[in-house]
Design a protein around this nucleic acid. Structure first.
Length: 293
DNA sequence: AATATGTTCAACCGCCATGAC
DNA sequence: CGTCATGGCGGTTGAACATAT
């Protein structure tokens, strides 16, 4: 793949290299930037002795050689952020990458295409559809949250957490979502925690939830057999009921307990700085109401 | 062991916005 | 204003590698 082609610049008749970068090229680029700094990529390409386009130099530096680039698999927190921000902003990879220090837009884009879109294909759902976004929110996100709060030591590389059982028809997807081991319950309008094994009966969702006794909660396995009916309503803006605590992943976890769980607070900080919540409690209730008919 | 198929991710491409002239 | 150079972005490609048959 190391083909060459003529420069399009009529003032220079240089054979431009393409394809994978060699160690020598990398060294040349790193040394040049160490001495002259970033930017002026075309000038860099001309003056550094690299037979590459400025664009190619820029890409190699930003996606691979830059010192603060993180290597390795995306953490559950990072995956959560990507899922959340992609649902909010769409394929604005560079913007999303700004909230994941050390990760490049290219890496995030690749993650989305290889991991997330793969699931959409298997479900035969358009990855940009509301149905799929709901599936991500309701199935994938809780799984990642579980890992975030109680990190699984033996996770396989990348997002295999998501690849486990999502290859089901929607009905199974929902049953899987609500199976007891999900440890998911809606406790009140201001909290949603993962440590329980129950979900409140949504038929009373208009009541003051926090006033309801624990006995009014229903075991999640009572919800088995419900038909999948994607949620289309709800609002994503903050209002009186969509409290800040409903944003992922603060949930009921305080910053201290969150940190004490061994996780960093990167996600919280990022979400707080992002501002507009896209996972309000109203949405969650609306979703359940729709499903439960 | 050989081949087919699937997955990953670095790199490229085209398009567009911006700024200098 | 128009033109050009440049850099940034999102979409796509394809070689390398992994896994299945």
């Amino acid at each position: 793949m190391s083909g060459k082609r003529r420069s399009s610049n009529k003032h220079e008749d240089v054979e431009l290299r393409r394809g994978p970068w060699t160690l020598e090229e990398d060294t040349l680029l790193v040394h040049y930037i160490a001495f002259h700094g970033e930017g002026r990529w075309n000038l860099l390409a001309r003056c550094s002795g690299l037979k590459r386009t400025g664009k190619s130099c820029r890409l190699r530096w930003l996606n691979y050689l830059k010192p603060d680039i993180k290597r390795g698999n995306l953490s559950p927190e990072e995956q959560l952020l990507i899922l959340e921000l992609q649902s909010k902003w769409g394929n604005r990879w560079s913007r999303i990458a700004q909230y994941l220090p050390g990760r490049t837009d290219n890496e995030i884009k690749n993650y989305w295409r290889t991991q997330v879109q793969k699931q959409a294909r298997q479900l035969k759902i358009d990855a940009n559809s509301t149905v799929f976004r709901d599936a991500v929110r309701c199935y994938w996100t809780p799984r990642l949250l579980e890992q975030t709060i109680s990190p699984q030591p033996a996770q396989t590389p990348h997002a295999d957490t998501a690849a486990t059982a999502i290859d089901h028809p929607p009905r199974d997807l929902v049953q899987e979502l609500f199976r007891p081991s999900t440890h998911c319950r809606f406790e009140s309008r201001s909290s949603y925690e993962l440590s329980g094994a129950e979900v409140r009966n949504p038929s009373t969702s208009t009541a003051q939830v926090s006033d309801l006794p624990e006995s009014s909660w229903k075991p999640v396995d009572d919800l088995s057999g419900i038909e999948f009916s994607p949620f289309h309503g709800g609002s994503s803006d903050d209002n009186a009921h969509s409290l800040g605590a409903c944003r992922l992943p603060p949930l009921t976890a305080s910053a201290d307990s969150y940190a004490a769980s061994g996780c960093t607070t990167t996600y919280n900080n990022c979400m707080n700085s992002v501002g507009d919540s896209s996972w309000s409690m109203d949405e969650l209730y609306g979703m359940l109401n729709t499903w439960m008919g």
